[in-house]
Design a protein around this nucleic acid. Structure first.
Length: 421
DNA sequence: TCTGGGGTCCTGGTCCTG
DNA sequence: TCTGCAGGACCAGGACCC
């Protein structure tokens, strides 16, 4: 363990739900559930009033409605949450440049070098917490420890609890002093460890393991034999408070993907093909904005019975073009039997590398326009033109021709119903 | 009965190459 | 020429996270 580090884990309280209440104060005091407003869906966040009735994130929306029929169900507004998140991260940056965002609503901060200026870890956490509330209007909870893992668990200890009348304030800041990590960790349920989900927990229970202390006391070989080498060693280290991972700012994405669950299962290859084009176009746009190209293209298909497959292909050259991604995705989908109906379809790009300036082929130089080869420079020029138009007129101002119907705006293409059915 | 979306990491199998 | 082996790349799926 790195000595004398001070790491904060900062986690917004019921972020999406609190953000909605912030801009709609009339909802304050009501159970609010974000996500799951459609026919198929799960809860993204629930206010503490809703949590009192047992509503939890990732719960199917139908179940959430049964538990709390009076709740206000809202669609999420990702752009709004992203704006708030940017404000919050900007405030964090006043205390340290070493910030590792985990998602829109939580981050690790290494404040070791700021202690002289701002005070102890707990003082920094308290000031940060109050500043975020004063300037943004939302509360967060913070954990303070010498390692990321313990700081994360500590922030959970600082959280408010749920009541019918709303959140009952928690500590707000919870500190695990250096040297007291094992004392803090050992009584916790094994499920608290990062990397222990339902499947791993079932395996651990077969060994009689219920707490973090049980894992810590077990020979590492025994843990490895049950959950595999990498996971086993990782869990054993965490359980013994060994975690030397540093806070890593500027983490680059390793994959970019888009997927969509349809309101009703789709059976028609043509319909699915058009969704594939739309998603490929979107993924390609995100790649180009990030200045990246993908080596591997994959598709994900979830069938009506919820079974899921993935198929991937690594073509000879990397791509950032919607046309290129779409062609590979179609190739992969063509080999899939769609008899069971498709509930979800996704397109992903991985093996990301910095954008390369492609060399012109002989055909390019000869100006051959009778090919669909997406690596060609004319497709590249078309993509650049599309990006420019979208920058000026918005994301829905232009798109692949196959997605447009006569007289229909592209913006209307992605509603719940299938626009081609 | 119902199970989102966007990610990361790991494992095990297959295929190719030296 | 054939066989065995090791290592790497690729592929598919599982588990997990927020």
């Amino acid at each position: 363990m790195a000595p004398d580090r001070t790491i904060l884990h900062v986690d917004m309280d019921a972020f999406y739900a609190s953000a909605e209440i912030l801009r709609r104060p009339e909802l304050r005091g009501s159970p609010v559930v974000v996500g799951g407003a459609g026919r198929r869906g799960v809860v993204a966040a629930a206010s503490y009033e809703a949590r009192f009735y047992g509503v939890r994130s990732a719960m199917p929306s139908t179940q959430a409605r049964r538990l709390c029929p009076n709740a206000v169900f809202l669609d999420g507004d990702h752009d709004y949450y992203r704006d708030l998140s940017t404000q919050i991260m900007d405030i964090m940056a006043r205390f340290t440049p070493l910030i590792e965002p985990l998602s829109l609503d939580e981050a690790f901060l290494d404040v070791t070098s700021g202690r002289r200026l701002f005070g102890s870890g707990s003082a920094i956490a308290a000031t940060l917490r109050q500043t975020i509330f004063d300037e943004v209007g939302l509360w967060c909870s913070a954990g303070v420890a010498a390692t990321k893992f313990v700081a994360k668990l500590a922030s959970e200890r600082a959280k408010p609890s749920a009541s019918r009348a709303g959140p009952v304030p928690g500590a707000g800041v919870f500190v695990v002093a250096p040297g007291r990590e094992l004392e803090f960790l050992r009584p916790l349920p094994a499920r608290a460890l990062w990397g222990v989900g339902p499947a791993t927990m079932t395996k651990l229970e077969r060994l009689g393991i219920t707490t973090v202390g049980d894992i810590a006391d077990m020979p590492v070989e025994r843990v490895v034999s049950v959950v595999g080498k990498a996971s086993g060693q990782h869990l054993h280290n965490l359980a013994n408070a060994r975690d030397d991972r540093s806070v890593e700012p500027d983490q680059r994405a390793k994959s970019i993907s888009q997927e969509q669950t349809f309101q009703f299962d789709l059976h028609d290859r043509g319909d699915l093909g058009r969704h594939l084009v739309r998603m490929s176009d979107s993924v390609a746009g995100r790649l180009r904005r990030a200045g990246l190209q993908a080596r591997t293209i994959s598709i994900k298909v979830r069938f009506g019975d919820f079974s899921t497959i993935t198929r991937s292909l690594t073509p000879p050259s990397s791509t950032d073009s919607g046309m290129g991604i779409s062609q590979v995705a179609h190739e992969l989908l063509d080999k899939v039997d769609l008899g069971k109906g498709v509930r979800l379809l996704g397109v992903g790009a991985s093996g990301l590398e910095e954008e390369q300036h492609e060399q012109l082929t002989l055909d390019d130089a000869m100006g051959d326009a009778n090919t669909n080869d997406p690596s060609r420079s004319d497709w590249k020029l078309a993509d650049e033109a599309v990006d420019e138009i979208r920058r000026k007129f918005g994301i829905d101002s232009i798109g692949p021709a196959v997605l447009a119907k006569p007289g229909e705006r592209l913006a209307a293409r992605d509603k719940n119903e299938n626009p081609w059915g």
